[in-house]
Lab assay of single mutants.
Amino acid sequence: QVLVIRIKIPNSGAVDWTVHSGPQLLFRDVLDVIGQVLPEATTTAFEYEDEDGDRITVRSDEEMKAMLSYYYSTVMEQQVNGQLIEPLQIFPRAC
């Protein structure tokens, strides 16, 4: 299952990153890619938005798994409803 992660860049749009092994993705892998997209920032975590629009911070593989399972459940709903699949949007955080 292909996963598209949209890395939101403060004040300048976003970069889409296509991942072919989504469920095996590790927290460190995401930080590495964010580091390539935002080389001047030191990113130690990132956030995503849940169904209520609240930002949830991801700082570990466990939290990463929770984010992915949340995302895959929303994708299934979108597929069932015949909607366009939205990329998983993440917001890098420099701490």
Rank of each mutant, 00 (worst) to 15 (best):
I85M: 07
L68R: 01
R55I: 04
Y70V: 08
V15A: 02
D32T: 09
V58K: 01
R59A: 11
T42R: 14
D61Q: 07
L88P: 01
M76N: 14
Q79P: 11
M67E: 00
I7N: 01
N11D: 12
T43M: 07
F27D: 01
Q79E: 13
L3G: 01
S69E: 12
V15Y: 15
V58L: 00
S12A: 14
D52A: 14
E51G: 14
Y72N: 11
L84W: 08
N11H: 05
E77R: 13
H20M: 10
T44Q: 15
E62C: 13
G22W: 11
E51R: 12
R28K: 14
R59M: 10
T42N: 14
N11S: 11
F91T: 04
F27Q: 03
W17C: 07
I85G: 07
I34H: 00
F91Q: 00
T74C: 09
F46Y: 04
T44W: 07
P87Y: 05
V80Y: 11
D32I: 02
V30N: 00
G53W: 00
E47D: 11
L88K: 01
K8G: 04
P92G: 00
S12Y: 12
I90T: 04
Y72Q: 12
E49W: 03
V4S: 15
Q78L: 08
I90F: 05
L3P: 04
E63G: 10
I7P: 01
D16P: 00
G82D: 08
I34N: 05
L84R: 14
W17K: 14
Q83H: 10
V75Q: 10
A45Q: 10
A14F: 15
F91K: 02
S73H: 10
G35N: 15
V33Q: 15
E86F: 04
L31H: 02
Q24K: 04
S69H: 10
E62L: 09
V2P: 05
Q36N: 09
G35W: 09
V80L: 11
E51F: 07
P23A: 10
I56D: 01
G53F: 02
E62Q: 11
P87V: 04
A14N: 14
M76S: 12
V80I: 12
E63T: 05
G13V: 11
H20D: 11
V33N: 03
T18M: 05
C95G: 12
Y72A: 08
R59N: 10
E40I: 03
D16N: 07
P39N: 07
T44G: 10
R93P: 06
S69Q: 13
L38E: 02
S21Y: 05
T74N: 09
D52Q: 13
R55Q: 02
P92L: 02
R59E: 08
S73D: 11
L84K: 15
D54T: 14
G82E: 09
W17S: 03
L68T: 03
D61W: 03
Q78S: 12
Y71P: 02
N11Y: 05
Q83N: 11
I9S: 11
K65D: 12
G82I: 03
M64A: 05
Q78F: 07
L68F: 06
V58Y: 00
V33Y: 12
V37S: 05
L88E: 04
V37E: 05
E62P: 09
V80T: 13
Y72P: 01
Q36G: 04
Y71Q: 03
I56N: 04
P87C: 03
I7G: 03
V75N: 12
L26D: 09
T43K: 04
V4D: 05
R55N: 03
I90D: 02
N81E: 09
S69C: 08
L25T: 15
G35M: 09
M76E: 15
V58R: 01
A94L: 09
C95D: 15
I5W: 02
E63V: 01
C95T: 10
P92E: 00
Q78R: 14
V58E: 03
F27A: 01
N11K: 07
Q36E: 15
E51Q: 14
L88C: 05
R6V: 00
I9Y: 06
Q1E: 15
E62D: 10
V30P: 00
L38W: 15
F91I: 06
A14T: 14
T74L: 08
Y70A: 11
R6A: 01
Q24V: 04
E40M: 12
R6I: 02
A14R: 04
V15F: 14
L31A: 11
G82N: 12
P39E: 03
I90L: 05
L26K: 14
R28N: 12
Q78K: 15
V4A: 03
